[in-house]
């Protein structure tokens, strides 16, 4: 009897679950997971945004503009802006990194002869620094956005 193997594919949902595979020295995967999640959230938010901004077209713009202009401190509107800013900053910054690396083939290092500790050229040097820069800028810009929304 020919035995049939068991499919062993985690699927795309599982592929963004960091516990399915725990690969060391691979923050790029974390960036990939965050990029996917923020991308999906942005698509949803944009749809909601179009819907919500469509409402004052029927009810009048004055109340809407007033609400937006007076939004400071912790209110549902500023919280929404804060989370949207976090999502958009990451997706945008990481997107620039991906454009450089994926489409222009920059920053992935030069081929080299394997030598200990055997880290692939694209996982060190320019590309990795760029990734850390993305994370650092993301944190700074998000905190700054929070400061402007909640404090200033």
């Amino acid at each position: 009897m020919a035995l049939k193997g068991k499919e062993n594919k985690p699927g795309w949902i599982a592929s963004i679950n960091p516990w399915v595979l725990r690969i060391v020295n691979n923050p790029e995967r974390l960036a990939f997971v965050l990029h996917r999640i923020t991308g999906v959230l942005m698509a949803l938010i944009i749809m909601a945004h179009i819907y919500v901004t469509g409402i004052p077209a029927h009810t009048g713009w004055e109340a809407w503009i007033e609400e937006i202009q007076n939004a400071h401190g912790i209110t549902p509107v500023t919280l929404y802006f804060f989370f949207f800013a976090g999502i958009a900053w990451f997706h945008g910054l990481n997107g620039i990194r991906l454009l450089l690396v994926e489409f222009l083939g920059l920053c992935i290092g030069e081929p080299e002869k394997p030598k200990p500790p055997y880290i692939a050229p694209s996982l060190k040097g320019c590309q990795r620094k760029l990734l850390y820069l993305v994370f650092a800028l993301w944190a700074i810009l998000w905190i700054l956005t929070g400061y402007i929304l909640f404090v200033a």
Partner: peptide, 17 residues
């Protein structure tokens, strides 16, 4: 570009790049 391929390759082939 999750680059996991390059991170696991035992021969430092760097397929991601």
């Amino acid at each position: 570009y999750a680059a996991s391929c390059s991170a696991v390759c035992p021969k430092m082939v760097d397929p991601g790049a």
